[in-house]
């Protein structure tokens, strides 16, 4: 979806994004409200996982391998009493509880999504402001970005993770790099249109130094579109992380992530589809919520949609 963010004319003065009225408008948008609500629930499920009847998500238990959802495991305690553990979403081929793994998996997805968005926006903003403002750097930087964008994002991420030892940090960096050019292009397009505005010329004419000029007059214009772009990056990062883990090149397989649970479930999918079904639903729901939030923000922050909509 971010591929559609063509440099479009953007209002010179940033719409006020932090006023009360804007806040009310945001919450009235059904996409923002529903998306944010779903995300809040999933984030809570992930954070509160230890108190939601989960067991250790990495504990291997050979006696309860491949159980269907709802299976009741009876554990005999040391004092002779019995405890019943219900495997709500069944277990995988190593006897790990899919319910626990799915809930804990929310943590990794949320972490990767927000980390990738924050880092790529920060780096992209820096490069984009520089490229848009320092004329002689513009050409070389943009050619470099064009080249990076020519490599399909998933392919680039897969290739990058193959270079490093697998882990969350490597995965985050591998997803950040393909996202940077998209942020840079967006920021640069805004800078180029804003720097011709009368108030920027006025600021230059009264002798505002470059750095304060960029921070005070140019940077604020980039924020609303960047917030929207950042939400789309969160969605795509969560998807790419799941894809990498699913293909077996991402986060180490014992770590509970939605992609890993599904990768584990591949072999016995015909008999035990729950290993792919449950994390798949969580993954799809999360990405859907982030996309709804992004679309809602875009409409509310009034970016280019008023140009596009008839």
């Amino acid at each position: 979806m971010e591929a559609l963010t063509e440099p479009a004319p953007i209002d010179a003065v940033a719409p006020p994004i932090l006023t009360m009225a804007a806040g009310r408008r945001l919450l009235r948008n059904p996409g923002v409200a529903v998306g944010a609500a779903i995300l809040a629930v999933i984030l809570l499920l992930g954070l509160a996982a230890p108190w939601l009847g989960t067991v250790d998500p990495v504990a291997i238990n050979p006696s309860v391998r491949n159980k269907l959802p709802g299976f009741e495991e009876i554990v005999r305690n040391d004092d002779g009493s019995k405890t019943t553990i219900v495997h709500r979403m069944g277990t995988d081929t190593l006897g790990r509880d899919v319910y626990s793994r799915t809930l804990y998996g929310a943590r990794v997805s949320m972490l990767v999504g927000t980390a990738v968005a924050a880092i790529s926006v920060a780096i992209g903003l820096g490069i984009g402001l520089t490229a848009g403002y320092v004329r002689w750097l513009d050409g070389p930087v943009m050619r470099l970005m064009d080249g990076l964008m020519a490599i399909p994002a998933i392919l680039l991420a897969i290739a990058l993770v193959s270079l490093w030892t697998a882990g969350i940090a490597a995965v985050i960096v591998a997803i950040v790099i393909p996202e940077i050019p998209r942020v840079v292009r967006l920021v640069r397009a805004i800078v180029l249109s804003v720097r011709e505005e009368p108030y920027v010329e006025a600021a230059i004419s009264v002798g505002t130094p470059t750095l304060p000029l960029i921070i005070r007059h140019i940077l604020p214009n980039t924020l609303p579109p960047l917030i929207v772009q950042a939400t789309y990056i969160v969605a795509s990062a969560i998807l790419v992380e799941a894809i990498l883990s699913f293909l077996g090149v991402g986060i180490p397989p014992e770590t509970p992530t939605w992609g890993n649970i599904m990768a584990e479930g591949r072999a016995l999918f015909r008999i035990f589809p729950h290993n792919i079904l449950y994390p798949g639903i969580f993954l799809a729901l999360t990405v859907l919520a982030v996309n709804m939030l992004g679309d809602g923000l875009r409409d509310t922050l009034d970016l280019r949609m008023k140009l596009r909509r008839v």
């Binding site: 969605a235 894809i243 792919i276 798949g280 799809a284 859907l288 982030v290």
Partner: peptide
């Protein structure tokens, strides 16, 4: 359209396999 962007390719793939093939 929004849903299509959100459901990962492999989830769609397995759902279709489950329905049409299995």
């Amino acid at each position: 359209s929004v849903l299509g962007f959100s459901v990962p390719v492999f989830v769609v793939g397995y759902a279709l396999i489950y329905l049409f093939a299995i």
